[in-house]
């Protein structure tokens, strides 16, 4: 039976290094993609990814078992991204760089799957076009599987605000993906 995130977190706080490795392997991909698709910059993503885990390590003793680990992790990442956006707002990301990072390896793209590849590329562009708050709400929903309440908690907004952001994001993506 797979141990829960909270159990692993408690074990790690108690000195079990292997518990942290399990937690990291379980959440590293989700966190990395959430940051990459939000920041759209590989270097900034790696920087904030590492900084997020550093914050987790530093704040482990303050973590409460009642809190869901994934929500807590994404909340830390969100706060770091907000700070990053405040510093980097004038500079727009390079779309080609972000898309290159999001592209799948070339060997996974046979010619027969060209239409599917084109569909994913359109989705990526649609995500890039979303406002930051709506894109973040969608990523938290699609990547981390968070509900409305958890999205609101991770982003530090009210439930209705989170619900509205998610609804607008879905509507905008549908419009952009509709031929």
């Amino acid at each position: 039976m797979e141990r829960s995130d909270e159990s692993l977190m408690q074990a790690w706080v108690g000195g079990d290094a292997a518990a942290f490795e399990a937690l990291y392997l379980r959440h590293k991909g989700m966190l990395f993609r959430y940051l990459l698709r939000s920041l759209k910059q590989q270097a900034a993503t790696e920087e904030l990814f590492q900084e997020t885990w550093v914050r987790v390590v530093a704040a482990r003793l303050r973590w409460q078992p009642q809190a869901k680990f994934s929500t807590w992790l994404l909340q830390i990442a969100h706060n770091l991204m907000v700070d990053h956006w405040r510093r980097q707002r004038p500079a727009e990301p390079d779309p080609e760089t972000a898309l290159a990072a999001l592209d799948a390896p070339e060997e996974d793209r046979p010619d027969a799957q060209w239409s599917q590849f084109e569909q994913r590329r359109r989705l990526q562009r649609a995500l890039e076009a979303l406002p930051d708050e709506q894109r973040e709400a969608f990523l938290l929903r699609a990547e981390a599987g968070l509900g409305i309440e958890e999205i609101a908690e991770a982003t530090g907004v009210g439930r209705e605000t989170a619900k509205s952001r998610l609804r607008y994001a879905m509507a905008r993506l549908r419009e952009l993906l509709t031929p």
Partner: peptide, 28 residues
């Protein structure tokens, strides 16, 4: 939409970044 998103490429952090984070946790 969610199915289409999950069909997107799923990049992972570089191995060096994994090693750095795990080393930091062990040091802590």
């Amino acid at each position: 939409l969610l199915e289409a998103y999950r069909a997107l490429p799923r990049p992972e952090p570089p191995a060096a970044l994994d090693a750095a984070v795990l080393a930091h946790a062990r040091a802590a």
